[in-house]
Nucleic acid binder design. Structure first.
Length: 889
RNA sequence: GGAGGCAUAGCUCAGUUGGUUAGAGCGCACGGUUCACAUCCGUGAGGUCGAGAGUUCAAGUCUCCCUGUCUCCACCA
């Protein structure tokens, strides 16, 4: 767009008319792509990569909005700014989606296709949904550098994954081991502890007799919620020192239905108070029993497989589904006289967080990351403050997790993901872990090599995100320039899943923290405060909101009132308020635009400025300071509400109104000055607002003449306003504040007395603050206070009779409105007396405070001074009221 | 069981290291066809800041305790 070509703004604010056009313009100009060689200080954010499972939801919209605000802010402040976009392959989640799709549309499973063909299908899916996510990011206005778009399974990132795996393996930090892990029979894979979703369900305790060998008719009773696991029992444990069972320890029991002989052991893990005090031990299917098994050298008998069917070891129950087997076993126990009773109970049971299936704990061989050595430096880094959480309380979450961390199970029995780079020799059993595929066994030379079938946990690759996306393991310019990144913006729900892993991986492989700050936001909930979810059907699609209200309104609604770490509700009222604000800004800008006759904006010299000009500049300057300080603290919501108040209450409701008189004096010097100040403040405000509402601010900016200081083709690349001490005008500001207070008081009084706006009255302003009420201010009374005429004097004694006028007292002035027929002297007296009492109350409160030696001695001087100033104002008001009262008959 | 959050106007929420007469949006009441905007303008009502105690010259803000509510982590056979 021609930088000198300005245009009128259309009458209605219609974001659909310009949002896409402006976004394309920014892309074409390459504003989102930084130059790595640029010497200015870097600012970098890597996006928390959305899963390629579907489309963006409100949570993403919030996350991207906050990031874009920071990125645009820093870019305008002159930082060399990079925001890396990308997506996550999301192992299980995506595989399940694609399998579901196959089932519904083609009636087949992944096994029908085979691994290779299935993966092709997943890649097709990824292309489709990955692109959709990118275009949604763009709709929101995200200023990501799309030339650096990343994907966790791209070649480059896969190289990084392999290198990390091999390095950790060689350091002994990755090992293969037998553990009780949670298996999802539906997904047919192990899932990590963090992916277990515990839910309370109604279940039962089955009390079962286990006969004692060689003691006819004697038995112990155990209680279990999962009777089918008895097939794998290899002991019964009692608490050490439990006198009831002391003589049992060492005896042998006969496992019912199975006939296996199992010992009674004593183990500290048993709570004698709970259940029967005797615990059946199934080391292969319960984490606690597994530990007990290790202590007592018990055999692990796996009786349930990964699909929740009974294994060969389960004898006659082999092949049965676990719940079918449970039924049968209970029936058989009952028939055999082993069942004592069934006791109803509710207990919490692990469910798959993806598909909701009840999980089965199974002992199996898996790959693990040894966490202790990695966690320690990661804890230290946060403790030292290398990386800090905003708000700080989330560091407690982090410590709590990291200090109690368990080894991380990283293998998954899936097809979609990074295949584990471990190669097994069928001849000699050698395991080779290598970055490059292995074809020949390095130990025996055999060619019978098979790669591990499993893939890595999806968080393994996203743990490397802050450096893999910048080119690691290659030593790139990007890494040198932008690592460590500046801030990570994410929700509190994935601090443990993801943030903690990036921290220890970054420290391990880059030798440095991955980011300086972790800016945590909450969840976006629905209008009733419920989590948005598919099952509830209460999700709101950000794209629909954008279509209806515009991306700026959506961004505003998400950013305003949002405070770090706290959940927020999204409602129609909120988005409407946001749209209304955009509309307000649009119309104010339209007003300024249509009154401009100048083609360059230049701030007039101070001595040319009217008091209200200085007032608005002073206010604007304070706004700059506030917005900057709050953005620097990640107080995005506070910064934005300061902008809202300024635009609506200060700029529109007062300043614009105050300029109208001058603007109507066409071609006068005052008119030109007002135009310049209006445009100057508007342009500055647009810049402050641009990070939050990029589209509307750009569209308006394009329509305005800019002038020497801001003669740019886009607001995006303009400088963010800086606080300027030369724009402080405390005295003139005070003058204008007094004026505003008086106008407000007149309006209030007129409303109270039911004087219709059409009824104009003369206004007598009795004041000692002549500078606040000079002749230049008379038009303000005519326009804003329904005045027909204005007179200002130090005293109106003998000019107007108080009994015929409504008297309005502020600290700066007493105003007389001659509306004799509406004035009831008795009422007037009563009202003033009441007001006086209230004012005197304040005076005595303040006097007491100021008379308190402790206060004067200990409070900061500025606070004491402010209280004194307040007291003076109240005293002036009180005096005014007394005066007014004395004039009444 | 361990950790943490929240509780402020009818509703939804701000309130930054303690320091004006505690604010906003929506809603409500009254009044407005002012030439930017009815997606608007003006005026107003409405709060003992969950209960109690403490620290301090000063507490919505800090400490303790209680109540209600939500979240995360662990998880009992």
């Amino acid at each position: 767009m021609d930088q000198n070509q300005t245009h009128e703004l259309p009458k209605t604010y219609d974001p659909s008319q310009f949002e896409d056009r402006l976004y394309s313009m920014w892309m074409e100009k390459g504003y989102f792509t930084p130059d790595v060689k640029d010497e200015r200080p870097p600012f970098c954010i890597v996006i928390p990569p959305p899963n390629v499972t579907g489309q963006l939801h409100m949570g993403h919209a919030l996350d991207e909005t906050l990031q874009d605000i920071l990125v645009r802010y820093k870019r305008m402040q002159g930082f060399n700014t990079l925001w890396v976009p990308g997506t996550d392959h999301a192992g299980i989640a995506t595989q399940i989606k694609v399998e579901e799709n196959l089932r519904v549309n083609e009636g087949i499973t992944r096994y029908d296709l085979g691994r290779e063909e299935f993966l092709k299908r997943v890649w097709d899916w990824k292309d489709k949904y990955g692109n959709r996510i990118i275009s949604q990011l763009q709709k929101l206005g995200s200023s990501c550098d799309f030339t650096r778009e990343a994907f966790t399974m791209s070649d480059n990132l896969s190289d990084a994954v392999r290198k990390v795996f091999v390095t950790l393996y060689n350091k002994g930090l990755i090992y293969r081991g037998l553990r009780i892990t949670n298996v999802c029979p539906h997904c047919n894979t192990v899932i990590s502890d963090a992916e277990v979703d515990y839910q309370e369900i109604d279940g039962a305790f089955w009390h079962i007799r286990y006969p004692i060998k060689g003691e006819e008719g004697k038995y112990v009773v155990v209680a279990t919620t999962r009777p089918e696991t008895m097939l794998g029992d290899t002991a019964v444990a009692v608490a050490p020192g439990d006198e009831r069972f002391a003589d049992l320890v060492g005896k042998t029991l006969i496992l019912p239905l199975v006939g296996r002989e199992i010992p009674v052991i004593s183990d500290e893990n048993v709570d004698p108070e709970f259940g029967t005090g005797c615990v059946k031990i199934t080391p292969a299917h319960d984490p606690n029993d597994y530990e007990t098994g290790l202590r007592h050298n018990l055999e692990n008998i796996i009786v349930i497989d990964n699909t929740a069917h009974i294994t060969e070891a389960g004898g006659k129950y082999a092949g049965m589904d676990r719940f079918e087997a449970r039924k049968q076993i209970v029936a058989d126990l009952e028939a055999g006289g082993y069942l004592v009773k069934i006791e109803k109970c509710t207990h919490s049971v692990g469910h798959c967080y993806r598909c909701g299936t009840i999980l089965e704990p199974v002992a199996s061989r898996q790959w693990f990351v040894k966490m202790k050595p990695l966690a320690e430096p990661a804890i230290e880094a946060v403790r030292r403050g290398d990386t800090s959480f905003i708000p700080d309380r989330f560091s407690k979450n982090y410590f709590n997790w990291m200090e109690n961390i368990k080894d991380w199970c990283i293998s998954r029995q899936l097809w979609w993901g990074h295949r584990i780079p471990a190669f097994y020799c069928e001849d000699c059993g050698e395991i080779t872990v290598a970055e490059k595929d292995v074809a020949v066994c390095p130990k025996c030379g055999s060619h019978k090599i098979t790669q591990d079938e499993d893939v890595l946990d999806t968080w393994f690759s996203s743990a490397l995100w802050p450096f893999s996306t910048l080119g690691w393991p290659n030593s790139t310019e990007e890494l040198k320039k932008f690592y460590p990144t500046s801030v990570l913006v994410t929700g509190y729900d994935i601090i443990t899943f993801w943030v903690s892993k990036m921290i220890f991986m970054g420290l391990e492989f880059m030798g440095e923290k991955p980011f300086s700050h972790v800016f945590i936001h909450g969840l976006v909930r629905d209008a009733q405060g419920r989590k948005m979810s598919k099952s509830l059907g209460n999700g709101i699609d950000p794209l629909e909101i954008i279509d209806k209200y515009g991306a700026d309104a959506l961004r505003f609604a998400l950013a305003t009132g949002n405070s770090p770490g706290n959940d927020m509700r999204f409602s129609d009222e909120k988005i409407e308020a946001a749209r209304n604000f955009a509309n307000k800004l649009w119309n104010a800008s339209r007003f300024v635009r249509m009154n401009l006759t100048i083609d360059k904006v230049e701030l007039p010299a101070a001595d040319k400025l009217a008091a209200e000009d200085k007032w608005i500049l002073d206010k604007f300057n304070a706004l700059v300071a506030s917005v900057t300080a709050n953005l620097d603290k990640y107080e995005v919501g506070v910064a934005l509400s300061a902008l809202y108040d300024f635009v609506w209450d200060v700029f529109c409701d007062w300043y614009i109104e105050l300029t109208k008189a001058r603007l109507n004096e066409k071609e006068s010097e005052g008119c030109l000055i007002a135009q310049n100040v209006l445009a100057y403040v508007l342009i500055g405000t647009l810049k402050l607002l641009h990070p939050f509402m990029p589209f509307i601010t750009e569209e308006i900016y394009q329509a305005l003449p800019h002038g020497a200081a801001c003669d740019l083709e886009s607001i995006m690349i303009s400088d963010f306003p800086k606080y300027d001490a030369a724009l402080e005008f405390p005295e003139e500001s005070a003058d204008t504040e007094r004026l505003i207070a008086v106008i407000r008081a007149i309006r209030a009084r007129r409303t109270e007395m039911n004087v219709p706006p059409s009824r104009k009255t003369k206004v007598y302003v009795e004041t000692k603050y002549a500078s606040s009420f000079g002749e230049m201010t008379y038009p303000f009374f005519l326009r804003l206070a329904s005045a027909s005429e204005v007179e200002v004097a130090a005293s109106f004694a003998g000019v107007i009779s108080a009994d015929d006028a409504a008297q309005i007292v502020t600290d700066a002035a007493t105003v007389y409105l001659p509306i004799s027929e509406l004035v009831d002297t008795a009422k007037e007296k009563e009202r003033l007396t009441k007001e006086l009492a209230k004012t005197e109350g304040e005076i005595s409160r303040l006097s007491a405070k100021l008379g308190n030696a402790g206060f004067v001695a200990k409070a900061p001087a500025a606070v004491v001074e402010a209280e004194r100033a307040k007291l003076v104002k109240y005293e002036e008001t009180a005096e005014g009221i007394r005066n007014a009262l004395s004039k009444l008959k």
